[in-house]
Each structure stands twice: as structure tokens, then as C-alpha cells.
């Protein structure tokens, strides 16, 4: 017995947004605080010791650069997927969404290679606080990528049936998923210079 909740497909005329869109913005605000806290922790730890390594000396900058490009590209494709729905083209949506997913897997694959190399050299969070914060921030970011993959895969697969019954609501969902994906991308854009280049 479903309740009739207003503004799930059309925006509330007073606030100009749908419920989901307001919800996702609030959620992202809390995510900003989460990563913000971790970055502040990084700064505090770094200021507290004299021997903090340079990221470019100990981390793999070329691989991370490739990953940066991959993520930015996926941010473009996720917008294209949404735009395709706006133009009522489900097929094109599926193409772009699949591309987004592909990019996310490439990202995780490269990340796994990076992690693997570190582990094989016996490097772990216990090695030093530089590595500890590196593993925690990139690990948490990786989990966010994984979460995005699950949501996007659902929206591409079984979730896409909604396109037939409630196209506007489905388009709204893709937009929210896109906003989330941009955020995950943005975190990386901060994380990459701070961890790898400084």
C-alpha cells in the first residue's frame, strides 16, 4: 500500500526541487564534512612531524594521473547519460551509463594495482602515518566508487524499468546518481594533488 508522496517526480513549485534532489544535496553536504574531517586530520598529522614524505617520491604518480583522467571522463559520460534521457533516448542512456561503469571498473583496477604494489613491498597503514592516511582516504574513496558502481549498475539494469512507468522520476534518479558521481570525482580531484603531488 504505497503512500502518495508529492514531489517525487515534479519539483515542488515553492522550493524548485524534487524531494530526491534536496535529499542528495543534503547527503553530499554531510559527505563534504566527512572528507573534510579526514583532510583536516591529514594536515594536523603532517604539521605535527618533521619527516613527512613527498607523495611524488613514494606514490605512483603516472597511474594516479591516468585514474584522474578516467574519472573525469566518467563524469562526462554520466552527464551524457542523463542528457540522453532528457532527449527520451533510452538506448543512448544505456550506452553512456555502461561507459561510466566501465570507467569506474578501470579506476578500481588501477587502484588495485597500486595497492598491490605497496603491499608486495610490505607497506601497510602500520608503516607510517603518511601511508596510513593515504590508505584510509583512498580506501574510503574507493568504497564510494564501489557504492556508485552498485547504484549505477542497478539503474542501468533492473532499475531502468521505471523509465516506462515513471520517466520523469527515473530521469531524476539518474540526475541524483550523477550528482553523487560528480562528488566522488571531486573528492579525487582534491585528493590527487594533496596526496600525490605535494
Amino acid at each position: 500500500m504505497a503512500v502518495h508522496i508529492p514531489y517525487i517526480d515534479k519539483p515542488n513549485p515553492v522550493t524548485g526541487v524534487t524531494n530526491a534532489k534536496l535529499g542528495i544535496w543534503l547527503f553530499l553536504a554531510s559527505e563534504v564534512m566527512l572528507f573534510g574531517a579526514l583532510f583536516s586530520a591529514l594536515i594536523t598529522l603532517r604539521l605535527g612531524v618533521s619527516d613527512w614524505p613527498h607523495g611524488y617520491d613514494v606514490l605512483n604518480v603516472p597511474l594516479a594521473t591516468v585514474n584522474t583522467v578516467v574519472l573525469i571522463f566518467s563524469s562526462v559520460t554520466v552527464v551524457m547519460a542523463w542528457a540522453a534521457l532528457k532527449m527520451h533516448n533510452l538506448k543512448q542512456f544505456k550506452t553512456y551509463m555502461s561507459l561510466t561503469l566501465l570507467m569506474s571498473f578501470i579506476f578500481l583496477g588501477i587502484k588495485a594495482v597500486e595497492y598491490g604494489k605497496k603491499f608486495s613491498h610490505g607497506i601497510s597503514p602500520a608503516t607510517s602515518n603518511f601511508y596510513a592516511i593515504y590508505f584510509v582516504i583512498t580506501g574510503l574513496h574507493g568504497l564510494h566508487i564501489l557504492g556508485g558502481i552498485i547504484v549505477n549498475a542497478y539503474l542501468l539494469g533492473p532499475g531502468s524499468h521505471m523509465w516506462k512507468s515513471e520517466p520523469e522520476r527515473f530521469t531524476g534518479r539518474i540526475e541524483c546518481a550523477g550528482l553523487y558521481w560528480h562528488f566522488v570525482d571531486l573528492v579525487w580531484i582534491f585528493l590527487f594533488p594533496i596526496l600525490y603531488l605535494l
Binding site: 564534512m33 566527512l34 572528507f35 579526514l38 584510509v136
Partner: peptide
């Protein structure tokens, strides 16, 4: 969220041996 972050850091200290 900052406490969640802090809890993750403390978990790392306890479980993964970070400092």
C-alpha cells in the same frame, strides 16, 4: 560525519596498526 571519520581512524589504529 567528522566523528564517523574519527571512528574510522581509530578503527584503523586498532585493527591495521596505524598510529
Amino acid at each position: 560525519p567528522p566523528l564517523e571519520g574519527a571512528a574510522i581512524l581509530q578503527l584503523a589504529d586498532r585493527v591495521f596498526g596505524s598510529s
